[in-house]
Amino acid sequence: MAFDPRTPFQRRTAIDAGVSAKALRGPRFRLVLPGTYVAATTILTPLVRARAALLPYDGVAWVSHASAARVYDLPIPTIADEHVSVPRAGLRRRHRGVRAHVGRHAATRWVKGVRVTEPLMLFVEMAGMLTLVDLVVLGDAMVRRRLFSPQELVTFCARIDHKAVSAARRGAAYVRRDVDSPMETRLRMLIVLAGLPEPQVNLTVRDERGEVVRKYDLSYPEVKVAVEFNGRVHVLVPGAWEKDLERRDAIDGSGWRLLPVISSGIHGTPEQTLIRVHRVLLARGLPGVPLHLGDEWRAHFPGHADAA
């Protein structure tokens, strides 16, 4: 194949193509991974880095774990290094910046011209790298992208043999359809891990003619309580705040109680958020609400005041 510096290449490939070592260190090229380069005009996307990580493996490896999640453009926290998998341990190679795993399953598909772990197996792989809440955020996003359904995920995790299967099964049990954003997942998990009944996701309310009048992120329709995450759009988009106030007036007129939650109510003061939700659910008589909040949420939301 002709040498194309717009895609990742190894040092020896460039030298064989007539590019000097001095030129590789110059402004025409940039380092992707140790020993791997690309033209300086190429943007270092997750796909470019994944291709660079695969170069030493001559087609026997595939992109997996965090690198695969980044290629799929899924929401995960920052995780160091690129990650690839090979079918047996003897095929692993030592390369700085790349972690090689043994993936005997070889459950893969092609995405954007790169071989990557298929979605169900990727969820299990990530169960060994993520916290419970981050794993459910990932699962909800994968369902939203129609990579699999919640039931397909539960069934797959029930039969797979993998070192992270216990964490995968627990996370899969919390994955839901119709979740609009990672922050909605985090809010739902905060509520559930505190021992409160699980709210319904994305309830659609219709009028007597069947017309949709409103939707609620998280709700308890039995007692007409809705808990919603309000992002920065309510502040930054002109007119959004006014429309939100009009919507709240309509909700109040229908007997619903709306509990808005912002980012700091999840990351900074989650206990205050839980107390608000708990008090309203108790006051409205929702069955199954405990008299006292549980403590399991504290391990998953370390930004709370008690962490200090």
Results as ranks from 00 to 15, higher is better:
residue 1 M to I: 05
residue 2 A to R: 15
residue 6 R to D: 06
residue 9 F to Y: 08
residue 13 T to Y: 00
residue 13 T to W: 02
residue 15 I to P: 04
residue 16 D to C: 01
residue 18 G to A: 08
residue 22 K to N: 10
residue 22 K to G: 12
residue 24 L to I: 14
residue 30 R to S: 11
residue 30 R to Y: 02
residue 32 V to L: 15
residue 33 L to F: 02
residue 33 L to N: 12
residue 39 A to P: 00
residue 40 A to D: 01
residue 41 T to V: 09
residue 42 T to S: 15
residue 44 L to W: 07
residue 47 L to I: 10
residue 49 R to F: 04
residue 49 R to P: 06
residue 49 R to G: 07
residue 51 R to V: 09
residue 52 A to N: 13
residue 55 L to A: 04
residue 62 W to A: 03
residue 65 H to Y: 08
residue 65 H to R: 13
residue 65 H to K: 14
residue 70 R to W: 07
residue 71 V to T: 09
residue 77 P to A: 10
residue 77 P to R: 04
residue 79 I to D: 05
residue 80 A to V: 13
residue 82 E to P: 14
residue 83 H to F: 11
residue 84 V to Y: 08
residue 85 S to T: 09
residue 89 A to V: 11
residue 89 A to N: 13
residue 96 R to I: 07
residue 97 G to K: 11
residue 99 R to S: 12
residue 99 R to V: 15
residue 104 R to N: 04
residue 105 H to K: 10
residue 105 H to V: 01
residue 106 A to D: 11
residue 107 A to H: 00
residue 107 A to D: 04
residue 108 T to Q: 04
residue 110 W to K: 09
residue 113 G to I: 11
residue 117 T to R: 03
residue 118 E to H: 12
residue 122 L to D: 00
residue 122 L to S: 05
residue 122 L to M: 04
residue 123 F to W: 12
residue 125 E to I: 05
residue 127 A to S: 09
residue 127 A to L: 08
residue 128 G to Q: 08
residue 129 M to H: 11
residue 131 T to P: 01
residue 131 T to N: 09
residue 132 L to W: 02
residue 135 L to Q: 00
residue 137 V to Y: 02
residue 143 V to W: 00
residue 147 L to I: 03
residue 148 F to E: 01
residue 150 P to K: 10
residue 156 F to C: 10
residue 170 R to M: 06
residue 174 Y to R: 02
residue 175 V to E: 03
residue 175 V to Y: 03
residue 179 V to E: 12
residue 182 P to G: 14
residue 184 E to L: 05
residue 188 R to F: 00
residue 190 L to T: 10
residue 191 I to V: 15
residue 193 L to R: 12
residue 193 L to G: 10
residue 194 A to S: 14
residue 195 G to I: 13
residue 195 G to W: 15
residue 198 E to R: 04
residue 199 P to M: 03
residue 201 V to N: 02
residue 208 E to T: 15
residue 210 G to D: 02
residue 211 E to S: 06
residue 215 K to Y: 04
residue 223 V to W: 05
residue 224 K to H: 11
residue 225 V to I: 13
residue 228 E to R: 12
residue 230 N to Y: 15
residue 230 N to I: 06
residue 231 G to C: 01
residue 232 R to Q: 14
residue 233 V to E: 07
residue 233 V to S: 10
residue 234 H to A: 13
residue 237 V to C: 02
residue 237 V to P: 01
residue 240 A to N: 09
residue 242 E to D: 14
residue 242 E to F: 07
residue 243 K to V: 08
residue 248 R to A: 10
residue 250 A to H: 14
residue 254 S to L: 12
residue 257 R to L: 15
residue 258 L to M: 15
residue 262 I to F: 07
residue 263 S to K: 13
residue 267 H to P: 02
residue 268 G to C: 06
residue 270 P to V: 10
residue 270 P to G: 06
residue 273 T to P: 05
residue 274 L to P: 01
residue 277 V to D: 13
residue 278 H to F: 11
residue 285 G to S: 04
residue 287 P to D: 04
residue 287 P to K: 03
residue 287 P to S: 08
residue 289 V to G: 01
residue 290 P to Q: 08
residue 292 H to L: 11
residue 297 W to C: 03
residue 299 A to Y: 05
residue 305 A to S: 05
residue 307 A to N: 04
residue 307 A to H: 15
residue 307 A to Q: 07
